[in-house]
Design a protein around this nucleic acid. Structure first.
Lengths: 228, 228
DNA sequence: CGAATAGTGTCTTTTAGACAATATCAC
DNA sequence: GTGATATTGTCTAAAAGACACTATTCG
């Protein structure tokens, strides 16, 4: 293999979650050059015998401290401009992860400097490397996929109410949705959610049915973002 | 950079076109091991100072013999199982290209063994490396994107009729569409196509208006695949 | 003229979206 | 009861899909 140009390959993660009605991304503060002191996406080098999805899952577990419980992980894209890393020719395979709002904080994780940052109060141009562009692509992917897949449930705990699911859509899309039409649409789309037969207790207002994610992988009909 | 595991990086292409009402993919017959004699996706190693999209465009130009005229090129995904290439650790960034049915054959190209193969009469399991899976992913991406983008026009010449565009949809989706509803939908979707004010001549039947691709990047409303 | 293809009109069903009304809890 | 939230119902507009009909060419 010495006759071929040698590259380093990394796996970087866009990890999104919803906390307190704001969309957050998991970032780490870099402690070493290059971009020392800057926010960056969590990630690291892929092992020479490691498969790409395994590397992404390993990084995700390391950075969140969780043994990868619920949630969703998919490949986002590969970024490899020759000058993107001053240390040499590094190509990064970026991954998009969606997690439920963690009841436990990120404590116990490898990266002590990891933190959840609200995406709407973050200057993406300040991120290390080309991570601003990666984050932008990840956000657009997540927003688009909420339309035609049941992926919004990846932001929710295993059991959730229609109102919680609606809050996910409203937060990720940064819009308001009519609760009554939303309810009819979610419960009317085959396989999106299934009732667990129990209700919430001790909340304000009328108790709400609890649901789990259904078996559908594609939504028919899709949930459409309001135009403009 | 010697402290990081060294990878080779390739750019492989899923190049699709429509000829004679069949969807074709551009394949090359491998002349050297590994997988000597097998069909494979065209591609090659990325230069150490070469950007990833540049490498893809270069390979596309080399294999088709065209200076990348019309058409569409986008990143499909990255494949890097440790054992996918017996020569060593090779990660490939796959690209999806859509081209109009070439009036000129592939002659004059670098790869003398390149050929268009109908995807429906091809055993994907026989392709070299993991190219069967890459092709499957590329086909699904193309089929899905015809729904909500004007990408079907990438399969057409610069000026085309509604019937030609319909033939693209029917071929890629392997289905039949009602010509009358299709016409109303295409011409009624803002920015999908724009009339050039001229008609076809010398064809059978009533002459058809010629259109060009419009400015829209997303279709509202989308063209939906018939269910089941 | 007849065959063939292009394009328009009409009707029915489905879905989106606005919003009234009712249900069931905590207090 | 009052306030809050959940859920159902009703209406209108937009879009999907089936299909009759008209338009324009070639031979």
């Amino acid at each position: 293999m010495t006759e071929y140009p040698p590259f380093a390959v990394t796996a970087d993660l866009v990890v999104l979650t919803v906390r307190a009605d704001e969309l957050h991304v998991l970032l780490v503060r870099r402690g070493v050059p290059p971009f020392e002191g800057c926010w960056a996406l969590p990630g690291g080098f892929v092992g020479i015998d490691e498969d790409l999805p395994d590397a992404a899952a390993r990084e995700l577990a390391e950075e969140t401290g969780l043994p990868e419980p619920a949630g969703h992980l998919e490949q986002l894209g590969t970024y490899g401009q020759p000058a993107r890393d001053p240390r040499g020719r590094v190509v990064t395979v970026a991954w998009l992860a969606l997690l439920p709002g963690l009841p436990t904080p990120v404590a116990g994780s490898d990266a002590a400097a990891a933190d959840w940052v609200p995406v709407n109060r973050l200057d993406r141009a300040r991120l290390a490397f080309d991570h601003g562009r990666v984050l932008t692509d990840g956000l657009e992917r997540a927003r688009a996929k909420l339309e035609y897949t049941p992926l919004a449930t990846a932001f929710c705990p295993a059991e959730f109410t229609v109102a919680q699911l609606r809050a996910v859509y409203e937060t990720v899309w940064d819009t308001r949705l009519d609760p009554r039409n939303f309810h009819r649409k979610v419960t009317g789309t085959p396989g999106f959610v299934v009732s667990v037969g129990r209700n919430t207790e001790g909340e304000r207002g009328r108790p709400a049915q609890l649901f789990r994610r259904g078996p559908a992988t594609l939504l028919h009909p899709p949930m459409l973002r309001p135009p403009a």
